[in-house]
Design a protein around this nucleic acid. Structure first.
Lengths: 254, 254
DNA sequence: ATAATAGTGTCTCTGAGACAATATGAG
DNA sequence: CTCATATTGTCTCAGAGACACTATTAT
């Protein structure tokens, strides 16, 4: 506490007992189809949870997180906790809400700051062992929402899900779940994995041949300027694309 | 502090010195033109500031706000502070960010939760006297951004402004600055007041004759079902509209 | 050939954009 | 009549939506 010429002192007031950051870590898990032929994988949205080993909510699953320290912002805290608890670094992480309902934490007056992180499954592969540890696991969001999570973490997860669904359709965060270069079928599948009822029969044509939209992606090309294609998922090669730096400006009035 | 069977105690850790809510209160001030003829008013976006009378930043202007108490959420705190400091109640108020940079507040480790409120100028008229008090005043946002505000309040204001500009184009919050029933010219003007470079020559036609957009507004009708019109701003009467309950779903992919 | 994915052709109809023209009614 | 605002007419062209069709290539 800084002391000074004024008579102000936080000690005169009841102060919070902590300001943690909790992180909702989403990833998409792809499973190759057991078919002889090439086929698109099935994809499922997963969320990472940790099993608590101390009071309160001992034994229950919870969102990763921890208390903010005096010398860091809550954003830095979220990044640090993510690294400490799951060894994940350098991913998209953003703040989305605060949770402060009195009594939400039996340890006292604790105001929690909720972040969401989008992690490419390729990044998780590096450290599959740690994720497989008994106290850190991926669950499908449906599973997680059916579980009896610690604190108000079910509410936080549910809010995060709503947020990511909205962002998936209004921004280019889908990029976080895709490799640098991807086919439009992959992109379509990723969107559908997060937003279940998204359907757009002319998806490919719309993205490639509509001027207003075609600015968000560009064709991938090799060093000779020739278009790059992928045969990973199909017999016929598919054009690879990458996201540009453009972020679309949406408006209900224009 | 709740004590219990565990060995947990917040007293073992350094805890924050406070978790205030700060509120960016926006309103649009209309000024009638000094013309003989009827004419649309000029509108300007204003923000409400209070002049601090205690350390720290004594004498400087700041956003209204105050410390959250143990028995309330930060959202409830924002509403309470709004009411206590400016007598404003029952307005649109939403949370938008947290500010926690170490050293941002000389009183100690203080994590601030920033809200923005949109207030119809009609509501302010009721209590013009209080607003005219020397320590509570409206400034245009341009003025406010040029001032040396207390704490990191210039940053907060600037973030709030960015947020409201985005929301003005993607949601129907314009309703907060308008009466129940309004003409489309008024709506257009309100949007332009907040988003300076918004221009849409066919604005009226687009809103009324495009199926996808016309769901957000409906024609106002009197008790006999006849369309209601306004002659307040023009010689020729203009149709009055009201917002429906529809919130538009925007997408970059469809 | 078959299967699975990737794309094109073609049609209709809505609506965006531009800009001129007309409507209203107080001063 | 004039002026400020409100609204309609009319044209062209982009693109949404539907759905059938063709392309590619491992097996």
């Amino acid at each position: 506490m800084v002391e000074n010429e004024s008579n102000y002192s936080a000690a005169n007031y009841r102060t919070p007992d902590g300001a943690p950051a909790d992180i909702v870590i989403f990833t998409i898990v792809s499973t190759e189809k057991q078919s002889a032929k090439k086929a698109l994988p099935t994809r499922e949205l997963h969320v990472m949870l940790i099993q608590r080993n101390i009071w309160p909510f001992e034994g229950q699953w919870a969102l990763p997180g921890g208390f903010t320290q005096e010398n860091e912002t809550v954003y830095e805290c979220a990044k640090r906790e993510l690294q400490e608890e799951t060894s994940i670094e350098d991913v998209h992480i953003e703040y989305f809400n605060v949770y402060s309902t009195p009594g939400r934490d039996p340890r006292g007056w604790i105001i929690s700051h909720a972040f969401l992180a989008l992690v490419n499954e390729k990044l998780l592969a590096h450290r599959a062992a740690a994720v497989d540890a008994s106290d850190v696991r991926l669950f499908t969001v449906e599973e997680a929402l059916r579980m009896d999570l610690a604190f108000d973490h079910k509410q936080i997860l549910s809010d995060a899900l709503e947020g990511i669904r909205k962002k998936m359709l209004t921004t280019t965060i889908a990029r976080e779940f895709l490799p640098e270069e991807f086919t439009l079928s992959e992109l379509y599948q990723v969107i559908q994995t997060v937003v279940q009822d998204f359907e757009e029969p002319n998806f490919i044509r719309k993205l490639t041949s509509t001027k207003s939209r075609s600015t968000i992606i560009e064709e991938a090309a090799d060093e000779n300027g020739l278009p790059k294609q992928s045969k990973q998922y199909s017999q016929r090669a598919a054009q690879l694309y990458r996201f540009t730096k453009e972020e679309p400006q949406l408006s209900i009035y224009s």
